Lab assay of single mutants.
Amino acid sequence: NQASVVANQLIPINTALTLVMMRSEVVTPVGIPAKDIPRLVSMQVNRAVPLGTTLMPDMVKGYA
């Protein structure tokens, strides 16, 4: 199973992502692939993302 990107903490709306905010985990449904973590750094979330939430492409500005 492919690992997805999961929030390692509460990420407030419009926050630029950093490595410490994200972890990889095998979850259902599948979200953004963990291999894309380096690409996500500095991108902003367009909503508040609670701890443990799988990041989906529509949550990150400029990803999709």
Results as ranks from 00 to 15, higher is better:
P12M: 14
T53K: 07
S42R: 09
V27K: 07
V5K: 01
T53Q: 08
P12R: 10
M21S: 04
M22A: 00
T28Y: 13
D36A: 05
A7K: 00
N8S: 13
I32D: 00
M22C: 03
G62K: 11
D58F: 13
L40G: 01
M21I: 03
Q2A: 10
Q2C: 15
N1W: 09
V6Q: 04
M59N: 05
V27Q: 08
K35D: 15
S4Q: 02
T18A: 07
G52W: 06
V6D: 00
I13S: 12
T28R: 03
M22G: 01
V60C: 03
T53S: 15
Q2F: 14
A34C: 15
G62W: 07
D58M: 13
G62F: 12
I37T: 09
M21R: 03
A16V: 10
L40A: 00
G52S: 13
L17K: 00
V6G: 00
D58V: 08
V6L: 07
S42D: 06
M22V: 06
P57A: 13
N46G: 11
M56A: 06
P12N: 10
E25G: 06
G31K: 01
G31V: 02
D36N: 06
K61H: 10
S42C: 15
P50H: 13
T28C: 11
M22D: 01
K61P: 08
A34D: 15
L19V: 06
P33S: 09
V26L: 12
V5P: 01
P33A: 13
V60R: 01
V27G: 03
M59S: 07
M59R: 03
T28D: 15
M21F: 06
V45W: 00
K35S: 15
G31D: 01
A34T: 08
V20N: 11
V41L: 14
K35V: 15
N1Q: 15
G52M: 08
S24N: 09
N14Q: 10
M21Y: 05
R39Q: 09
P12D: 13
L51C: 13
A3E: 15
N1H: 14
R39N: 06
L55G: 01
G52P: 00
V60P: 01
M21V: 04
G62L: 14
R39E: 07
V6H: 02
L40V: 06
A7E: 00
M59L: 06
R47I: 10
P38I: 09
G31F: 01
N46Q: 12
L10E: 12
L10H: 07
V41G: 02
Y63K: 03
M56E: 08
A48Y: 08
P50S: 12
R47W: 15
N14P: 01
A64L: 15
A16C: 15
V30A: 12
S24M: 11
V41N: 04
P33V: 10
I11H: 01
K35N: 15
L19F: 07
V26E: 15
D58R: 05
P33N: 13
A48V: 11
R39C: 15
N8K: 11
M59H: 11
A34Y: 09
V45L: 12
K61C: 13
N14D: 09
R23Y: 04
A3F: 10
Q2G: 13
I32L: 06
L17P: 02
I13V: 13
N14C: 12
A3T: 10
T18L: 06
A16M: 10
A16Y: 08
L55T: 00
R23Q: 04
P29W: 05
M22K: 00
R47V: 07
N1L: 15
Q9G: 05
V20F: 14
Y63L: 05
A7W: 02
V41E: 07
D58C: 14
I32E: 00
T54E: 01
I32H: 00
G31P: 01
Q9M: 14
N1I: 15
I32C: 05
P29R: 04
D58A: 08
M21T: 03
V27I: 10
R47L: 09
I13T: 12
R23K: 08
L17Q: 00
V26C: 12
I13K: 07
I32Y: 02
S4V: 02
A7N: 01
V60Y: 01
A3K: 05
V27H: 03
D36Y: 06
D36I: 04
Q44E: 10
M56P: 01
Q2W: 13
I37W: 03
T54N: 02
V45D: 00
M22F: 11
M21P: 00
M22R: 00
A3I: 09
R23T: 04
L10C: 13
R47H: 13
M43V: 04
A3N: 13
P38C: 10
R39V: 08
Q44H: 08
V27N: 03
V27M: 05
A16L: 10
A64H: 11
L51V: 13
P50W: 12
V26S: 10
S42Q: 09
K61L: 10
N14L: 09
R39H: 15
T15V: 08
T53G: 14
V6R: 04
G62E: 10
L51N: 09
V26H: 12
R23F: 03
Q9I: 09
T54R: 03
V20R: 10
S24D: 14
S24H: 15
M56L: 12
I13C: 11
M59G: 03
Q9A: 11
V49E: 01
M22S: 00
N46I: 14
N14A: 06
V5E: 00
V45C: 09
P38L: 07
A34E: 15
R39W: 10
L10Q: 10
P33I: 08
E25C: 14
L17T: 00
V20G: 10
G52V: 02
L19C: 11
N8V: 13
Q44W: 10
P38Y: 12
S24A: 11
A7I: 06
P12S: 05
Q44F: 13
K61I: 13
N14V: 03
M56G: 04
V26I: 12
V5L: 03
V45S: 12
D58P: 08
P57V: 07
V27D: 02
A34L: 03
V30N: 12
M22I: 09
K35I: 14
T18E: 04
T18Y: 03
V6T: 07
L55Y: 01
N1S: 15
P29L: 07
G62T: 08
T53E: 09
E25D: 08
P38K: 05
R47S: 06
D58I: 09
S4E: 01
A48H: 10
V26D: 15
V60T: 01
V5H: 00
P38H: 06
L17A: 00
M59I: 06
A48G: 06
S42A: 14
V20E: 05
S42M: 08
I11R: 01
P57S: 14
S42H: 09
T53A: 13
P38V: 08
T28A: 06
K35W: 15
T54Q: 03
V5G: 02
L40Q: 00
V41A: 04
V49T: 06
L51Q: 12
G31L: 02
V20H: 08
T15I: 08
K61Q: 14
L40W: 02
V5R: 02
Y63C: 04
N14G: 13
P50L: 07
E25W: 08
L19Y: 11
M43F: 12
I32V: 07
P50G: 09
A3H: 14
P57W: 12
M21W: 02
V6S: 03
L40T: 01
R23N: 04
N14T: 05
S4K: 01
P29M: 07
P57L: 06
L40K: 00
K35P: 15
V60G: 01
A48C: 13
M59A: 07
T15A: 08
V30D: 15
R39D: 05
N1P: 15
R23M: 04
D36M: 05
I13E: 14
V41H: 08
L51P: 14
I13M: 11
M22T: 02
L19H: 06
V26Y: 10
R39G: 13
L40S: 00
V6I: 11
K35L: 14
R23E: 03
S42G: 12
T28P: 01
P57M: 07
I13F: 13
P12G: 12
S42I: 03
M21N: 05
V49K: 00
T18I: 05
I32W: 02
L55I: 11
S4H: 01
L55C: 02
N46E: 13
M21C: 03
T15Q: 10
L55S: 01
N46Y: 14
V6N: 00
R47Y: 12
N46F: 14
V60A: 02
A16H: 05
K35F: 15
P33T: 07
L51S: 12
Q9R: 07
A3V: 06
K61G: 08
G62C: 14
Y63N: 03
T15C: 05
Y63R: 03
R39M: 12
A16Q: 08
K35M: 15
K35T: 15
T54F: 02
S4N: 00
Y63M: 04
V49I: 14
N46R: 13
E25F: 06
K61T: 13
S24Y: 09
S4T: 04
M43S: 08
T53W: 15
R23S: 04
M43L: 13
Q2D: 15
